[in-house]
């Protein structure tokens, strides 16, 4: 089941004009920002499928930028995001790729950069504002169904997984699926934790404060 809540259907409350190309795009941008952990200096966005063909008419560029600025889908500053980004010194470039065929028509790849800090993320807007994240820094992510999920970038050290899991247990949240991947031993690693219950921003913030955690994003 891709959609699990009635509010996936009657919702989100959002700035128009498109739930998939505006609200979904804003959500993809915001997950990227959360995982990146700070305001990026530059962002390169590659757009595929229907995103590539109609991004300008739907305000997809404006919405992705709003998400990168950490705005919600209903934030009234959303229509001015390009201007706000410019003032904050964030350079964002959009490249429509009409050649590559992607599994879903509304796919975007974002590359965020500030100094040494870089993040590559691929998001898909599946309809009605709902999104999926399918890749982070080369880690393929397979989230089954639509349960809430935590994406955690962390250092590959012993105890890191147990500490995060311990906090989740403290909040009486049940983990339904978990995936841990890393590039090489001792380097950067990625935890994908899917839960039965909703994940509060409070829990995400507490996990982010743990010693080996880098950045945390919540997918609801």
């Amino acid at each position: 089941m891709k959609y699990r809540s009635v509010f996936d259907i009657i919702g989100p409350v959002m700035i128009g004009p498109s739930s998939s190309h505006t609200a979904g795009a804003a959500r993809i941008g915001r997950v990227a920002r959360k995982l990146f952990g700070e305001v990026p200096e530059s962002v390169t966005v590659t757009l595929y499928g229907s995103f590539a063909e109609t991004y300008k008419g739907h305000g997809t560029d404006v919405a992705l930028t709003a998400g990168i600025l950490n705005f919600d889908t209903s934030d009234e500053r959303l229509p001015q995001s390009l201007e706000i980004a410019r003032k904050q010194g964030v350079s964002i470039r959009f490249y429509p790729d009409r050649e590559t065929r992607t599994e879903h028509p509304n796919t975007a790849r974002l590359h965020l950069k500030k100094g040494e800090n870089e993040l590559d993320i691929v998001g898909v807007s599946i309809g009605g504002g709902k999104i999926e994240i399918i890749e982070v820094d080369g880690f393929a992510i397979s989230l089954s169904g639509s349960n809430p999920a935590l994406l955690v970038l962390h250092r590959d050290k012993y105890g890191a997984v147990a500490e995060a899991a311990g906090l989740i247990a403290k909040y009486e949240i049940n983990i339904s699926y978990m995936q841990v991947s890393r590039h090489k031993k001792g380097s950067l690693a990625m935890m994908v934790i899917q839960t039965d219950e909703e994940i509060s921003e409070g829990l995400a913030a507490e996990i982010a404060c743990l010693p080996n955690m880098l950045n945390v994003a919540v997918l609801s």
């Binding site: 009657i10 989100p12 409350v13 959002m14 700035i15 128009g16 498109s18 305000g59 229509p79 009605g128």
Partner: peptide, 11 residues
């Protein structure tokens, strides 16, 4: 670009 509630989508 006003505020609406998607039902099921914005369009």
């Amino acid at each position: 670009m006003g505020t609406i509630c998607a039902t099921p989508t914005a369009g």
